[in-house]
């Protein structure tokens, strides 16, 4: 297992090199001139040359790429083009906000949805099952944006139960995050529970479930012990795959609720042509994706004895 993880981490190096190279290529060849963007059309020639030198854009492509790689390795991406703030500071703040936005509803929501799906599987074929199926299909057919706009309008603007948007660091952030958490949780229920229910019902028909019942295991024991551990394998794949979607979903949430998370920072950076931020974001998402992939495989081995990592 240990060597497997090491090997997988080593495999990540060529992948990330490729991502870094492509990102670099796209920005240097196809991107707009950031100096022009920063200084405007009527800037003096001296100012342009000076800024170009300051940002290192007067160097050869090879040197610029080398500098980019050094930035990646040292996690020091320099300064923002537009605000001059250190990128590491911007990201540290952003990551905290994004995580506090997505992590709680993801963790608790998934657990909650698993329990609800087990409950519904217990009543398979009964009216509870049918009604919930209908409700979840309806809820899944409505766009994410509708939930955000309607709930923000009703609960925050009309009833005033939550702040409409904004963010404060520390404990007071909770009041700003409550409504976004609720929306993320609500939107995940339909697809999650439908999926988990299908996975469970697929397993309920298995022979090993009949064996467990035949030895006298009670129905809750059959569901929560025998079925759940087997169902964890497909559930894990589907959940971990959903994490990147959760981050892209957070772009929208952060935008609507004016939360200064990674998503919001990136969108602003794209609008302002802030290259360092975009480059850093691209590389960091590639790192995240690779790490989550590795994490899934490790979790597999922990849940399924038939999977050996070697």
């Amino acid at each position: 297992m240990f060597f497997y993880v090491i090997r997988r981490l080593l495999y990540m190096i060529p992948t990330l090199l490729g991502v870094a190279f492509l990102t670099f290529l796209l920005f240097t060849i196809f991107g707009e001139d950031p100096v022009r963007q920063a200084l405007g059309l009527h800037a003096s020639e001296e100012a342009i040359v000076a800024l170009r030198a300051k940002w290192g854009l007067d160097q050869s492509f090879a040197k610029q790429f080398y500098d980019f790689l050094v930035q990646i390795l040292t996690f020091d991406y320099g300064e923002s083009f537009s605000t001059g703030e250190k990128l590491s500071d911007i990201f540290c703040g952003g990551v905290l906000v994004s995580l506090s936005l997505t992590a709680p509803p993801f963790v608790f929501g998934t657990l909650f949805n698993i329990v609800i799906a087990l409950f519904i599987s217990y009543f398979r074929g009964k009216s509870l099952d049918k009604i919930s199926t209908f409700l979840f299909v309806v809820s899944m057919s409505i766009s994410y944006l509708v939930y955000i706009i309607v709930l923000q309008y009703l609960l925050a603007y009309r009833f005033g139960w939550f702040p409409i948007q904004g963010f404060e660091p520390g404990f007071s952030s909770i009041s700003y995050l409550m409504l976004p958490w609720f929306i993320i949780g609500l939107v995940s229920m339909g697809p999650d529970i439908r999926l988990f229910r299908t996975i469970f019902l697929d397993q309920v028909k298995s022979d090993y479930i009949r064996t467990a019942r035949a030895k006298g295991a009670s129905e809750p024991r059959v569901l929560f012990v025998h079925l759940l551990k087997n169902a964890m394998i497909p559930i894990l794949t589907n959940t971990v795959i959903a994490i990147p979607f959760l981050i892209t979903g957070a772009f929208v949430m952060e935008r609507y609720f004016a939360l200064p998370g990674i998503g919001d920072i990136t969108i602003t950076a794209i609008n302002e042509g802030d290259f360092p931020i975009i480059k850093a974001m691209t590389v960091m998402s590639a790192v995240l994706y690779s790490c989550f992939n590795l994490l899934t495989d490790v979790l597999y081995a922990l849940v399924d004895p038939r999977v050996k990592l070697s």
């Binding site: 022979d207 090993y208 009949r210 394998i233 399924d304 038939r306």
Partner: peptide, 10 residues
């Protein structure tokens, strides 16, 4: 079916 009657993860 002894092949499938046992729970594979215990």
């Amino acid at each position: 079916e002894p092949l499938t009657a046992l729970n594979p993860v215990f």
